[in-house]
Computed example of a mutant assay.
Amino acid sequence: MSAALTLTLFGTTACHLCEECLMLTQPLQGNGIQLRQVDIVEEPDLLERYQLRIPVLRRDDTGAELDWPFSLGQLLDWLGDAVGEGN
């Protein structure tokens, strides 16, 4: 059994796209995927890095980032190895 994968969602509380991204990831949570939300407004370096890109998901295991917009299919492809894609 592999360890849970943590994804970090960079966004802000007033971002409707961030809410859409959060809803898209909900089916994955609890199935080996944990989600941590980070409000970029609280940290100036994160605000500078992500303000024009949010929402952004980052895989904590590899550091790979996925910028919005993406579909559930694209998210699953991006997470392929972590969600056991492949038979």
Rank of each mutant, 00 (worst) to 15 (best):
M1W: 11
S2V: 12
A4K: 14
L5C: 12
L5G: 02
L7N: 09
L7Q: 06
T8C: 10
T8W: 06
T8P: 05
F10D: 02
G11I: 00
G11T: 06
T12L: 00
T12W: 00
T13D: 12
A14R: 09
C18N: 07
E19M: 12
E19T: 14
C21Q: 08
L22Q: 13
L22N: 09
M23I: 12
L24S: 07
T25M: 14
T25A: 15
T25D: 06
T25V: 15
P27M: 05
G30R: 11
G30F: 10
G30Q: 13
G30P: 07
N31V: 04
N31M: 10
I33G: 01
Q34C: 12
L35V: 15
L35H: 06
Q37F: 15
D39S: 01
I40M: 01
V41W: 05
V41P: 00
V41K: 01
E42Y: 01
E43V: 11
E43D: 14
D45H: 09
E48D: 15
E48I: 02
E48N: 11
Q51H: 14
L52D: 09
L52G: 03
P55L: 09
V56E: 10
V56D: 09
E65A: 01
D67T: 14
D67C: 13
D67E: 13
D67I: 13
W68F: 12
F70H: 01
F70E: 04
S71N: 05
L72T: 11
G73L: 03
Q74E: 13
D77H: 07
L79N: 04
G80A: 15
G80I: 02
D81T: 11
D81Y: 04
A82N: 07
A82S: 14
V83P: 03
G86D: 08
N87H: 13
